[in-house]
Amino acid sequence: MSMVAGRDMGRILLDLSDDVIKRLDDLKQQRKLPRAELLREAVEQYLERQNRTALSDALGLWGDGAVDGLEYERKLREEW
């Protein structure tokens, strides 16, 4: 384990295509950051997006706010 910016870090061996490595190196030159930092950033963004997707999937019908849940419940109760 190593320390980067005061955080414990594990290591992962990752195989990438030559094309992806070239694109990553181009981005490294543009942003003036090490490859490892770019990959950490990409992984963090991916995991955050996965969490948001899981949350929106869990909300299902009510997630888009198209229907007011309280109003829907009141209409159902009126039928009783």
Rank of each mutant, 00 (worst) to 15 (best):
E48D: 15
E78L: 04
D8T: 11
R23K: 08
M3P: 00
D19S: 12
R23N: 05
A42H: 03
D8N: 07
A66D: 01
G65I: 02
S17A: 08
D25K: 10
E71K: 11
K75Q: 09
D57I: 03
D26K: 06
E73Q: 04
E79Y: 10
D18A: 09
E78R: 05
G69N: 10
D15F: 00
V67F: 06
A42R: 12
K28D: 00
R31G: 05
T53Q: 07
L14G: 05
D19K: 09
G60T: 04
R77F: 02
N51Q: 13
M1V: 13
V20K: 01
E79D: 11
R7E: 06
M9W: 06
E41G: 10
R74W: 10
R40H: 15
Q45P: 06
Q30Y: 10
K75N: 04
Q45W: 13
L14I: 06
G69R: 10
E73V: 08
D25V: 05
E37K: 01
V43P: 01
V20W: 00
G60D: 15
K22G: 08
G10F: 03
W80D: 13
K32I: 12
E41K: 05
G63P: 09
R49D: 15
S56F: 13
L13Q: 09
L59A: 13
Q30V: 08
K32H: 07
L33V: 03
R23F: 14
E79P: 00
